[in-house]
């Protein structure tokens, strides 16, 4: 169960419209390393995860990612909400506008629709956590790329917050991976999948 709180995790208050930058930032809504993929990745992975600490971590980071999805959408919305047809035509926003007007729709900056193939749920905690650590770094790089193009401090500020959270999540997932590996035989972490394979003798498979 999720409960909506009437606030953003980090405030967004943008006073100048900028449809060009909005088209870039929307990649973190529905692009390959965006917040939609992040939240759905961790929420999907947690069911097979037998380690309760790591399943809890996946739930809590996924929940935060949903609030980041809301922040990115708020940025795109506020960058585009007062556009005139002339501004739409002049900025290149017309290709998005023709299908979605000023609605928020999950796509990459290049126009590719959100696709669940962009995130993995493999049912093996080592595999999934390594995926998650890579995902956080890819999102961090994307925010770095955005920050090189954005000049408006009202836009940079929330983007910097989101970037910083990717670094923290990477750290926490790394600790999650350590927790999983601490319960495995250090001579061969990959001898079996702790979320799938059954051990015949207790103590044989684990350290």
């Amino acid at each position: 169960m999720w409960t909506y709180e009437r606030r953003l995790q980090y405030p967004v208050k943008i006073t100048k419209c900028d449809p060009k930058i909005a088209q870039i930032i929307i990649s973190q809504y529905g692009g390959p390393d965006g917040e939609m993929g992040a939240s759905m990745r961790y929420l999907s992975q947690r069911y097979s995860c037998k380690n309760r600490k790591v399943a809890g971590l996946m739930t809590d980071i996924a929940t935060e990612e949903i609030s980041h999805l809301e922040i990115v959408a708020a940025i795109v919305h506020q960058l585009t909400k007062d556009l005139t047809p002339e501004q739409i035509a002049a900025s290149g926003f017309d290709k998005y506008y023709v299908d979605h007007t000023l609605g928020i729709w999950p796509q990459a900056a290049g126009g590719i629709p959100f696709n669940a193939c962009e995130f993995q749920s493999k049912g093996d905690p080592v595999t999934d956590l390594v995926e998650d650590m890579a995902a956080e770094q890819k999102a961090r790089t994307t925010y770095d790329n955005i920050l090189r193009l954005v000049k408006d401090p009202e836009v940079c500020d929330p983007i910097r917050f989101l970037r910083e959270r990717e670094v923290v999540h990477f750290q926490r997932f790394g600790e999650g991976l350590r927790i999983i590996q601490d319960e495995l035989n250090f001579k061969n972490f990959y001898a079996f999948n702790p979320d799938f394979d059954k051990c015949k003798r207790k103590g044989n498979c684990t350290k």
């Binding site: 606030r7 953003l8 995790q9 980090y10 405030p11 600490k53 809890g56 971590l57 809590d60 980071i61 935060e64 923290v168 999540h169 926490r172 600790e175 999650g176 927790i179």
Partner: peptide, 23 residues
């Protein structure tokens, strides 16, 4: 007031992730 709520909520968001891996 909302700014203050955001700040203290963020403290809890962050420390709860830490507690997930350091209970």
């Amino acid at each position: 007031m909302l700014h203050f709520i955001n700040e203290v909520s963020f403290v809890l968001d962050d420390v709860s992730l830490f507690l997930d891996t350091h209970p």
